[in-house]
Nucleic acid binder design. Structure first.
Lengths: 265, 265
DNA sequence: AACGCTTGTTCAATCCACTGAACAACCACC
DNA sequence: GGTGGTTGTTCAGTGGATTGAACAAGCGTT
C-alpha cells in the first residue's frame, strides 16, 4: 500500500455504484479540479484513479462531448460548462439575491466586505461576496473552500451541528490545518470556541487564517428543512477594527441572517 | 413531432456515446440547469430525456453520491459541488487574476463596471466582473450566458471568427433573439456590424439588451492556440455616456486586452 | 372508499459497455 | 539509431449495467 503513489481509487472500495461510469466521471472532474496545474493527461488520470486506460479514454471522450472538460493537445482540463452549471446553482438560491440587496442598504455593512457561505463536506464554500470597500480586496473567490476551523463562518456553522457530528469530524487527536501562528491547533480549543459561539450567537476569527485580518460571522437560521445551513461573515482589517464597530456589524449581520432565514420577512 | 412535449433525447440520435451513462448524466445536469424552478423529479427527468425510469433512478443515485446533484424529498436539483468545480475552472484562468489587478489601477476603468467573457457554444459566458461603481449594479452574474447578437462582447467575439463559421451560425433567414426595440433583428444587420467591428477594433452595444445601458467591448488577442478567445466589456449608463469618455475606455480596454494577450507583457 | 393516474422501487434476463492485451507513435536518453 | 520507457488507440470477448414489466405507495376526483 505504501510503496508508491496512492491511487485514490475512484470507487470507495466495495461500495459499487449504481452507475459506475458516472461515479468515475465525477472522480475525473475532482481529480482535474484538485490537480495543481489543472491539466492532466489520459495516463495521469488512469493511473491516479486506477481506471484502465481504455475506459478512461471513453470517459474523457464522453465528458468532452458534454463540454464538462476540454482537451488541449494531450492535456485535459475542466470545461466552461461547469461555470455555467455552478452559476445555475447559485442563481437558484434566493438567499443570494436578497443578500446583495440587504448589504447595499445596510448602514454599516454597505461599506464592508461581506460573504455568504455554506458547509460543504468538511469545508465551507463561499457562495457570494459583497464588496463595499475596494480598500480590502479579498483573494478568495466565489466557490473557494476553507477548512472549518480556520474561518469565522466555518466555526459558526460547526456550532450549529450536533455534538456527536462535531466529535466525529474532530476527534481529540486530530491535526488541524494551520495557516498563521494564531490558527487553532487542537480539537479541544475548537470545541471550547464552539461552546462560546453557541452562547454569544456569533463567531470571531482573529488573524487565524490571515495575519492582519479579522472576521465576524453569524449563522442563518434554517427555516425548516430547506437545505444546509448558511453563514454570513464580515471581513475587516484588524488595524481599523473597534469594539463598537464590531457590535454594529454583528447587529446588522443578525438582521440580515434573520431576513434570509424568514423568506417573507 | 408537434403533438406533445418535445423530449430532447439525451443521445443525439444515432451518435452513440463511448460512455452513454456519462452522456446521460450530463443531460440530467443540463435539464436541471434549464428547468425554470431548478427542481425536477425522477419522472420529469425520465420523461424529458427519454430515459427509462429505472435507469434514471440509477443515474440520480450516482450523481447524488458525487454531490453533483441534491435530493430534497422527491425533487432533485443541482449540487454545490458544481460551484466548486466552476470555481476551480475560473481559478485556473490567469487572465482573471490579471483582469482584476488591471481594472483596479486603470484611471478610467477603475470606476466602471468591467467584465470578461468567452464564447461558449452560441452564447457568451461571463467569467469575471469588476465593479468600480456601485451605482450601476448589473443583474447579470458570473457564469451567466447571453446570445451573441445581443451584447457588445458577443459581437466582438463573433467578429473574430471566420466568415464561414458566422454564416453557419447565422444563416440569412435566422431569427435573432430580441430584448429591446433596439435589438438587432436580421442576420444582415449583424454581419454589417461585424464588418464594422473588424475595421474599428471594438464593438458598441447601444441599448440592444437593456434600455438605458450601453456597452463597449474589445477582443483579447489569442496568444497562440491557448484556448478560445476572450472579450472585455465596459458597461455604462447611456445618460452619462460621452464620446470622449468612450474613447478613454476603449483605449484602456485595449491596453488590458493587450496585457492579457501577452502574458508576460 | 374504490377508482384512475400518478409516482418511485424491485428484479431477473439481455445486451452492450467495459476490459486487457496487443498495437503503433512518440520522446528522451545514451 | 537503437533502446527503454512512455504515450494513446484499437478490438473482440465477457461480465455487469441497463432495461421493461410488474410492483407498491401516494394523491386527487367522483
Amino acid at each position: 500500500m505504501a510503496d508508491s503513489r496512492t491511487p485514490r481509487s475512484a470507487e470507495g472500495l466495495g461500495s459499487s455504484s449504481p452507475a459506475p461510469a458516472v461515479t468515475r466521471a465525477a472522480a475525473v472532474l475532482d481529480a482535474l479540479a484538485e490537480a495543481p496545474s489543472g491539466r492532466l493527461t489520459l495516463s495521469d488520470l488512469s493511473r491516479e484513479l486506477g481506471i484502465p486506460k481504455s475506459s478512461t479514454s471513453n470517459l474523457l471522450l464522453a465528458l468532452e462531448e458534454a463540454r464538462l472538460i476540454t482537451r488541449e493537445g494531450a492535456d485535459f482540463s475542466l470545461g466552461r460548462k461547469l461555470v455555467e452549471l455552478g452559476a445555475a446553482y447559485l442563481s437558484r438560491l434566493d438567499e443570494v439575491q436578497e443578500f446583495y440587496k440587504f448589504c447595499e442598504q445596510a448602514p454599516t455593512l454597505s461599506g464592508e466586505t461581506v460573504r455568504i457561505a455554506m458547509i460543504d463536506g468538511d469545508h465551507i464554500i463561499y457562495l457570494a461576496r459583497y464588496e463595499g470597500h475596494p480598500a480590502v480586496r479579498l483573494t478568495s473567490n466565489i466557490g473557494d473552500k476553507m477548512p472549518l476551523s480556520l474561518s469565522a463562518v466555518g466555526k459558526v456553522l460547526l456550532a450549529q451541528l450536533h455534538d456527536h457530528d462535531i466529535e466525529a469530524m474532530f476527534p481529540d487527536d486530530v491535526e488541524l490545518p494551520v495557516m498563521t501562528p494564531k490558527s487553532l491547533r487542537s480539537a479541544a480549543e475548537l470545541k471550547a470556541q464552539v461552546a462560546a459561539i453557541r452562547k454569544q450567537g456569533y463567531a470571531l476569527e482573529d488573524e487565524e487564517s490571515t495575519l492582519g485580518v479579522v472576521c465576524l460571522a453569524v449563522p442563518v437560521p434554517t427555516h425548516g428543512a430547506h437545505g444546509p445551513s448558511l453563514g454570513l461573515s464580515v471581513t475587516a482589517l484588524k488595524a481599523t477594527f473597534s469594539e463598537e464597530q464590531a457590535a454594529l456589524m454583528v447587529k446588522e449581520l443578525k438582521e440580515l441572517a434573520h431576513s434570509l432565514g424568514n423568506p417573507m420577512g
